[in-house]
Amino acid sequence: MIERIDIDHLTLRYGDVTALDELSLSMVGGKIYGLLGRNGSGKTSLLSVLASFRKPTSGDVRINGQPVFENQAITSQIAFIRESGDTVEDTEKVESAMRYAAYLRPNWDAEYAARLLERFEVSTKARIGSLSRGKRSALGIVLGLAARAPLTIFDETYLGMDAPSRYAFYDELLNDFMEHPRTFIISTHLIEEVSRLFENVVIIDRGRLVVQDDVETLLSRGNAVTGPADVVDQFVNGYGFTVIGTRQLGRTKSAMVYGQLDPEKRAEARAAGLDLEPLALQDLFVHLTEPRGDQS
């Protein structure tokens, strides 16, 4: 069981490049987490340190209070599936990848794995090197789900998969999570598609934490306030909302604000003739991680 994950002032440097910069966050077990960030924001670095694939430059990662790095008791509970599900040699067949996983993974469910391979139409006789990109991703998903590891990490594991296969993945993930509750961390670019699967979302940028919150809370904080420009400005500035983006069309302005809008403020905005619309997670993400020159 993963009770909790604590990441404390985690820094990871590759030569001159700082991939993770004093990043701190905590997760409690038993939830599906989404990890969002732009390319190069440090997602894979973070997940690699979490799975003990990399040693941090400074700071630490603890799972259930125990340091993760080179801690066999902890790492055996983690399944880390990278982009295209790399696990064994390309020359091996899918069935030997299954045997290998059965040997390595204490909770491996071979029957479930077989069912998943069938669902994703991956032949057990195929050589891994000959699989298309999509089928390789599907293989990664099978290895990740059937491992039933207390902590399962999928790092953009959908490359090359078509929409029906991705939706099959989402269905399998949800169902298996409900039948065998455990902790999942999923990093993704396809935010709209998967955001509803997450309970909690972590957004990082330039190796730092931008925001972490429950999806529903995050969504309730992002709103587009639209109306005559002067009225919008008055409302937004009057309450000191954090404006994360604006757009203007003629005299109509739309300000994307981040902050709690209680019912009184909502009523006031409506009375002033303003339109309020919740922002989609994708929009929130884009505006919270937009290049702004200076880090605020």
Binding site: K31, Y170, M178, R196, L197, F198, E199, V215, E216
Partner: peptide
Amino acid sequence: TNQYAAFYRINPATAAK
């Protein structure tokens, strides 16, 4: 909650809410 979650493809915590 789980039936709703599976049907709508949403996190069960959201359905529970």
